[in-house]
Design a protein around this nucleic acid. Structure first.
Lengths: 117, 117
DNA sequence: TCGACATTTCGACAACTATCGAATTGATTA
DNA sequence: TAATCAATTCGATAGTTGTCGAAATGTCGA
């Protein structure tokens, strides 16, 4: 019933457990899956599975598998609307992951944190 | 001869190619490997392999394998000093990865980008 | 109700990978 | 030089995972 109760999404910043972190990183580590997430993220509104599948050289079964991984990791939200399953990015999770990496990099003294910009 | 020429480290922010991004995410996705990277990152100076191995329940061969993955991904720098190989975090790469994820999250319209702080 | 469509589940298979012990390479010291 | 320590390389193995076609589930419209 919660908004994101899979691996524990919608975390408040870098409050990712080790398990959550691993699930998210594994989900992102597959190029095809990352591409799927990109498609969902860059669309202006929620998209269906078949829309997401369009022009992707993978079988529907494979997409379904990837979507489950993304959902389990808490990265996407799946709203079941009759025939269609509408996909959208679960807010906060990507940010939490980014923040975790940023924090690790900041923990390193030699890293000059050069925002040379 | 370059500072970080493995997968192409030391990137200028979110200038990660797809291959670099995948290599980095795969390297981070293994919990044990992430732990190894954390040890290297949190130490005040460069550490040797055996120092990194201390108290880790893995064989030296396994650590060596993980280190190669981290180095290939551009996440760490390995300086060979005689008997010892000194490990340190390659600056910029974790930040680039974090920025890539942040950018993806920002590309999503529904993501309210709530920095409720 | 029946057919068409969307999505998932079910094996199955191939590729990849984390892990290890043993052997090897390389450097230091006695 | 020989012994020792650090680290890697070499198979080998077990577990994981991305992929698919086929079958099943679920939903809608005619």
């Amino acid at each position: 019933m919660a908004l994101a109760t899979q691996t524990g999404a919608a975390a408040k910043s870098s409050t990712l457990t080790g398990e959550q972190r691993t699930a998210i990183l594994k989900a992102l580590a597959d190029p095809r899956r990352f591409e799927v997430l990109e498609r969902i993220a860059r669309s202006s509104c929620a998209v269906s599975c078949s829309q997401t599948l369009a022009d992707l050289p993978i079988a529907a079964a494979t997409l379904s598998h990837h979507l489950k991984e993304l959902e389990t990791a808490g990265l996407i939200h799946v709203q079941r609307e009759g025939k269609y399953h509408m996909l959208s990015v679960q807010p906060g999770v990507l940010e939490a992951m980014a923040e975790t990496l940023q924090a690790l990099s900041a923990a390193c003294p030699n890293a000059a944190s050069k925002n040379k910009k």
